[in-house]
Design a protein around this nucleic acid. Structure first.
Lengths: 221, 221
DNA sequence: GACCTGTCTTTCGTATACGAAATTCGGATG
DNA sequence: CATCCGAATTTCGTATACGAAAGACAGGTC
C-alpha cells in the first residue's frame, strides 16, 4: 500500500499562492499586502498569511515599507541584471555538469519539455511559453546534480518571472529560443560538454540582445 | 537629525538566534527544535518561533520529520560539495567583478579584514578565524556589485559554516589561507582582473586539498 | 514475559484575542 | 479656504487559546 501523502500546511499553501501571484504580476510591484484581506480571500486566518510573508521577506520578494506592513518588491533592474550576469556563468556550467550526470530518464524528460515548448509556440500562448522556458532551464539545473545551484536558481527564476511578466509582453522571437533549446539538449544527450556549454553561452548572449538591454557595468566576458 | 532605527521584530531576532545556533553547531544536526522550549528560553511566545522555523525550513536549514516538528538538517556532504563546486565558478567571477566595481571604501575594508584575520591567526582562535574567512569572501561578493550573487552565497555560507563547525576542528594551515587572501586582495586593489581570478581559482583548489576531499563526480575544471 | 490496545500527555498547526503604532478624518483655528 | 491637531479606525506584531495528531505508557491478553 501507498503511505498517505502528508498534506501541505496552510502556511505552505499560502506561500505558494502568494509566490505565484507576485511572480505572475497578479499583485503588482509596490502594491501592499493586507494580511486581513488576504486571510479572508484565501479563507485562512491571519497567522499562516503572516508566516508566509515572513518567508517572502527573507527572499526579498516583498519589502518593508518602514511603516505598516509590506509591499511587493519593486521590479529591480539591477537585481535582474545580477541574475542574468550570474546565469552567464552558471547556465553553461550547469549544461556541462548535466552532460556528465543526467539521469536515465533524461530522454523522456527532454522530449516532454520540447514538446511542451513546441505546443505553446504553435498556440502562441505567451504564459505557457514562459513557463516552458523556465522549466527547460530548471531541468538542466536539476540534471547538473548540484542541489545548491538548483535551489539558488529556483529563487532567481521567481525574480526573473516577475520581470518578464511586466517587461516582456511581446515574446521576442520565441521560435529561435526553442531551436536553441533543442540544439543544447541534443548536445547534452550526446554528452558533448564543450559544445553544450558553448551553445548555452550563445543562448544567453542572444537572450540579452533579444531583451534589448546590455550590461554596461563592464562585466568580463 | 537621524531617523530612528526600526528595531527588529521578534521573528527576525528569533530567526537570527536560531540561525547562528544551527550554523555554529550549538544545536546539533538531527536535534529536534521544540517550539515551546525555544519560546521559553528566548522569552517570546511560540508564534515568532513558529514563523522563524518556517523561514529556516524554506532555506533547508531544518528538515521536516514527517511526524511532529522539525529537526536541524543533517550535515549533507553532497550539499557541501555542491556549494564548493559552485564557488569554484563564482568566487573567481566575483573577484573579477570586484576589480571593476569595488567601492571607494575598499582599501579601509581590506585592511580591516586582513587585520582581523591576522589577529585571529596570532591568537589561534579557530572560531574568529572561520568568521574572518567567511567575511573575507562575503566582502568580495559585496564588492562584485551583484546583489543576487551576494544573497545566494550568504545562504551558502550558512551551510558551509555548519559543515566547518563539525568537520574542521583542526584549522588546516590557516597562515597559508591568509597569505592567499592577502595576495588576492592586492590584485583586486590593482584592478588586475585576470590575476585576481586566477589566484582565487588556486585558492579554492588548494582549499579542496586542505580539506582532504575531492569531487569524484567528474566536474569539469 | 512479550505484545497489543486504549488512554493520557505532549506538541504542533491554526484560530482568535489584544495592545500598540500608523493612518484617516473631522472639527477647530487662523 | 487651508492647516493643524487629536480622536476614531485600521492593521500589524505578538500572545494566548484550542483542536488534532503523535508519542508515551500502563493495564490487559496470550
Amino acid at each position: 500500500m501507498e503511505p498517505v501523502k502528508a498534506q501541505k500546511t496552510l502556511v505552505e499553501q499560502t506561500y505558494d499562492i502568494l509566490l505565484d501571484a507576485i511572480c505572475s504580476g497578479e499583485i503588482q510591484p509596490g502594491e501592499r499586502l493586507n494580511q486581513d484581506d488576504l486571510a479572508v480571500r484565501l479563507n485562512v486566518s491571519r497567522q499562516p498569511v503572516n508566516s508566509a510573508i515572513s518567508i517572502l521577506r527573507a527572499q526579498r520578494l516583498v519589502a518593508d515599507t518602514g511603516r505598516r506592513g509590506v509591499v511587493v518588491a519593486p521590479i529591480d533592474m539591477a537585481m535582474f541584471q545580477s541574475i542574468h550576469e550570474m546565469r552567464q556563468k552558471l547556465d553553461p556550467f550547469a549544461a556541462e555538469l548535466a552532460c556528465l550526470r543526467k539521469p536515465d530518464t533524461a530522454p523522456d524528460e527532454a522530449a516532454a519539455i520540447l514538446d511542451r515548448g513546441a505546443r505553446a509556440l504553435a498556440q502562441q500562448d505567451a504564459r505557457a511559453l514562459l513557463q516552458a522556458d523556465v522549466d527547460f532551464h530548471a531541468m538542466l539545473y536539476r540534471w547538473s546534480g548540484n542541489t545548491f545551484l538548483e535551489g539558488a536558481m529556483a529563487l532567481g527564476w521567481n525574480h526573473t518571472r516577475r520581470f518578464m511578466a511586466v517587461a516582456l509582453r511581446t515574446p521576442s522571437a520565441p521560435q529561435i529560443v526553442w531551436t536553441e533549446h533543442r540544439a543544447i539538449l541534443e548536445r547534452v544527450m550526446a554528452r558533448d560538454t564543450d559544445a553544450a556549454a558553448a551553445l548555452m553561452r550563445d543562448h544567453l548572449e542572444n537572450a540579452i540582445d533579444r531583451l534589448g538591454f546590455r550590461d554596461e557595468t563592464g562585466a568580463p566576458r
